[in-house]
Structures are given as structure tokens and as C-alpha cells.
Design a protein around this nucleic acid. Sequence first.
DNA 1: CCTCTCAATGCAAACGATTGCAACAAGGCA
DNA 2: TGCCTTGTTGCAATCGTTTGCATTGAGAGG
Lengths: 342, 342
Amino acid sequence: MNSKPKSATTMADLARLAGVHVSTVSRALADSPLVEQSVRKRIIKLASQHGYVVNSTARNLRSGRTQTLSVVIPLAHELGQGLTDPFFSSLLSHLADEITEKGYGMLLQKVVPPMDHWFDQLAAARRSDGIIVIGQSTEHKVLQAAAYSEVPFVVWGGHLRGQNYCVVGTDNVSAARMATEHLLRLGRRRIVFIGDPVSPEIKLRYEGYEQALAHGPAGTAKPVMVKAHLTPDAAYQATLEHLRTGRKFDAVFAASDVIAISAMRALSSSGIAIPEQVAVVGFDGIDLGAHVHPALTTLRQDLTRGAKLLVTQLLRRIAGETVESVKMPGELVVRESCGESR
Amino acid sequence: MNSKPKSATTMADLARLAGVHVSTVSRALADSPLVEQSVRKRIIKLASQHGYVVNSTARNLRSGRTQTLSVVIPLAHELGQGLTDPFFSSLLSHLADEITEKGYGMLLQKVVPPMDHWFDQLAAARRSDGIIVIGQSTEHKVLQAAAYSEVPFVVWGGHLRGQNYCVVGTDNVSAARMATEHLLRLGRRRIVFIGDPVSPEIKLRYEGYEQALAHGPAGTAKPVMVKAHLTPDAAYQATLEHLRTGRKFDAVFAASDVIAISAMRALSSSGIAIPEQVAVVGFDGIDLGAHVHPALTTLRQDLTRGAKLLVTQLLRRIAGETVESVKMPGELVVRESCGESR
DNA sequence: CCTCTCAATGCAAACGATTGCAACAAGGCA
DNA sequence: TGCCTTGTTGCAATCGTTTGCATTGAGAGG
């Protein structure tokens, strides 16, 4: 197509072509002020003509940096929720943007936790300069221990007491409380929580829900937890089962949008009108929530900002700074699934 | 916590500890038959005691392999569909499983196509042993050209005439035809296609749709295409707009499940009953389809198998074999969104 | 007892870049 | 003219492995 001169594959080749030493080429391509303007230009031009791109493996070895960040998702086996989860994949997408923009590569790993030393293995292989862990899952202890290793990492998840590693995430307690209070304001009094508190984030959301109920108006029913993993199937079944118990309720606060959507489906197919008979509020703010019927009221997490923060905090840790955890506020997005007025 | 001996960070350290030469350590860890059983065991034990893991950068440089596969998603800018798309992320998830299982790392990249030489850049940096391109998007020409480069890659997407690179994907034409014929069998005659044929896969689906209509029973209306990008918003708006034209239709064949779900929402909110007045069939078989209301009839693509094939074909190409494209059959999954009988 | 084989190990050269330091030329200043 | 500074460039060590080849020692066969 374009007349491509025989391509230079190594820096030495390029140096020969340019009639200079490889060190000069290296510096030229690195935009070092040590090499003269005209020479630098010539080398850069030559490089692009010959389709030369620095071999990153060699560069990494020598410089000790990999220009790569690992993103790892520990998936508690019981909750078979995968990258498939729209929330995770949305976060992933934002992370990809952010990491790419900072000039890094993104190495994606899945970890299925009944696995020893996953963190140490990951860290020791030195395939990346730092690690972003998405969701604490059941691995809080591992992460606490990892904080003593010298490998930089940050975690998306919940803020726990006595935590010694850097976490970025929504203020789950306040956010959940906000969501529940919204239901209370609308006059709902028997609000059910659906979710599985095995993961810290969900547990915190449950706490926020409890707090809201505890401060609710007279007649507010006590907390009820319907246990359901974060998968559509699990949530659907759990909702049906709860319906079969016959216990009355007029609202659902779901630990995630995926759960909420599945719960809505279970309710609908049982002939229950949403929001007239049962109002539903989710958590996460996934795109699809706006497009199910009825559209889902939810507590949005700001993933754009979350991803940005994860990456910048990690890069700062890599640079040697000590960084603090960040708690972001959630945002209530009101849509059809909980009627505006009773 | 666990009494960890001062960790050996380099192979030389470990060799010193074991009282052998580094080459012996290298061989021992690589399970080479050249090193004696007892020695090998001792070294392996020592390595795990000291938390030693081979530095993969160094290994890669020396051996010329990176043990990493790139996964890249070219995102045509106009269709702002991202990793967020449940279909993509599901495929991604399966790929992650498969790649990990084969002992490779997965390097994820996003490419926003009005970008020159993205493939060559990717290829030349040699960060991975091969590339999996998800979706041809608008980049068919680039891929055709890339086929002449020596970098192994495979593509998930549609099978086009004269294509000289390896593609794995569903037989879009047949599958779409199957879906449309199902609607015809149910007595629907005015079937609308929603989607954007700018990407080859969608175009092929449209062709299948056309074929089905061409062979449909008397009274079958001519093809109608409602253009909509693959995002929820776009599909929602496009559906509403089509409704405003007042043109009658009794079924929708959507180019993807995401489109289908958004279309259903648009229909529902316009007071149209699904499936009584308008039946809907999607394409992809994303999980969520089973959990919207009404549950979505769709044409499922076998992503588990797809991911497996992509990886094995790529690894074979890396090994130097020449590999053929693979066309997989789609599977019609009948659910509520198109009534069983008219 | 001497060689020959074979298994196991050590030696040292790559892999392809980065980077501190030396070298060199030109120009400024005394 | 001589010396020092400054701006460029070359030299060579280095990053941590892998791997072809040389070396060693022991056991077998003549």
C-alpha cells in the first residue's frame, strides 16, 4: 500500500540508518534535551518512516517500569457474578479509558478466590507497575496483608474500620440511607432489602438501610433482608421465594441495579404493579436501568470520577506518595419505579 | 503473619540460596528434564518459601514471547457503544477465562478508530504475542491490510466476501433469517428491522432479515430499516421516532438485545402491548434479556464457544499454523416477547 | 585400566533497550 | 594562547532471564 521501506525492527537498525549511536536514538525518541533538535527530528522522522516502535519488553526490563497497570477482579465463587455484570464492566470501561489516556496498558485478570497467595503471585511477577483491585469481595484480609508489601495497589470498594489500604468508592452507608429515606418520604413503610452482605460494600449498604429505618417515622417496619447473590437468576428466585412467604411489603431496596431489575421482573410476573403496589430502588446507576420498564430509580455511583480517582491515586502511590482513601457521594436518580407520590 | 523468610527477588538470589548456578534454577523452574529430580524439588520448594516468582519482563525479553494476548475493541465513534455493552463485556469475560486458563495474560485496549496505524502501532510494540480484535466496526480495510503483517491476530465478527484474515463469529445471515422466519411463522407480516448496518455484522443480519422476508408468505411487507446505533438511548429515540411516522408494524427484529430492550421500553411507554400488538426479537442472547419484562426472545450467540475458538485459533496462528475462519450457528431462544401463537 | 557415553551442571552470550560517565568540539573569557 | 564551560555524542554496563555449548564426574564396556 504505502511504500514502506524495509522496516527497522531494532533500535540498532535505526541507529545505523541514521548514522548515529543507539544511545542517541534512544534519547531522541525519549525527547531528551540532550540531543540536538535537528538530529532528533531526523531520527523521529526516520523511525516513523520505517515503522519503528520501541520494543516495550526491553524498555521495561531496563527501566524497571512496565507502563502497565493490572486490574483484577476477585470473584467470590458463590456469587458467580462476573465481568458480565454491567456495573463491573462499566467501571472497567472507564478504567480502560483512563489508563490508556495516562499512557499505560491495562492488564486484566480474574481471580477466583479460593486461591492462595493470588496477590503475592500477581505482585511478584512484576508484569505491572501497580494493581487496581475491583471490589473487596471476600478478600479483605488478603488486602490488609498486602498493604505491607511494597507493591502499589488501590481498591474499589467499601470503607471499613481499621482498613490500612487505599480505597476509592461511594459512601455506601450514606447513599443507601439516602435511597431508603426516599422510599420513606414517599410513604412506604415496609421496605425489604435484597442482597448478600457477604461482600463489604453490600454490608455497608445494608447498614445504611437499617439506619434509615431506625430513624423512620412511626409505623416503619423493621429491617428485612432477603439474601440474594448479585446475579439475575439468584435475585429473581429469591424475590419469588420471598413473595411465597406471604409477608407484606410495599417497597424494595435492592443492593444493586441488577438485583433490582430481576426483582422487578419477579414482581411483574407475579402480577404486582410497580410502583403502585411495590416501589423499587436500585443501587449503581447502570445505563440499562433507564431503559427497563418501568425505568429504575437508583442510587448512581459516579464511575467516571471513580475510575479517574483509582488511576490517579495508584499513579501517585507508584510515584512514592502516600495517598488517602476517597469516599464519594452517591446521587439519587428518581425514575418511574417508585411513584413520585403515594 | 506467616513467617516469611527474606524474599528472594532475583533468580541469582535463589541460586545462591540453593547453592547452584542460575541456569540450573531456570531449568528447574521450567520443569526441564535436564535437572535432577531431587534438585528440582528442592529449588521449587525454596522458591515458594521465599515467594520467588520469575520476573516476566526479563523472561519475555530473552525468550521473545510475552505470554500475553491483546484484546482490542475498535469503537466506531459514531456508535458510542463501549465495553459497557453487555454483549461485549460478556465476550470479554469469557475471553478472560479462556486466556487465563491457557496461561496467558490479557492486555485490554480500546481504540477509537479515527486513528491512523492503530494496528501497526499495536503490533510493533510487541507487548503481546497476538491480537484478538473484537468486532470489525469500520475497520475492515485496516484488517485486510494487517493480514500481510507478520503479527498473528484473529477477529470476532462477520464473514465477508474476499476476506483474508481469520474471523470467528456467528453465521449472522442464517441466524437473522432464522429469527425473522420465526416471526413470520407466528403470523407477523410487517416486521421492522432496527439497527445500524455501518458495522459488517449488523449488515449481514439485515441481509438475513431481507432474505427471510423475500421468501415470506403472501402479504409479507417489504423490509423496513430503522437506523439506530447500538446504544440504549439511540435505540429508544429511534423507536419513538418510527412510531411517530405512523407506519404500522406488528413485529420488531432488533440487531442486538440492547436495541431490543430499549425498543421494548419505547413501545411500552407508548402504550403498545408486547407481544400482543408488536412482537420483539433480539440478537445476542445477553443474560439480562431473560430478566426484562416481558422476557426477550432472542438469537443466542455461543460466546463460550466463541471465546474458546478465538483463543485456540490465535494460539495456533502464533504457533505458525494457518487457520481457517469459523462460522458458528446461532440458537433461537423463545421467550415472552413474541407470543407463542398469534 | 582406559576410554566412551550419558546425565547433570556450570559458563557466558544473547534479548533490546536505558543511562551514568567519559570524550570531544566549539566557544567564551582571561 | 590556554583553560574552563557548555552542548552533544559515544561507550559500555546493566536490567533478569534463557539456552547452546563446554565441562565434569560417574558408570559401563572392552
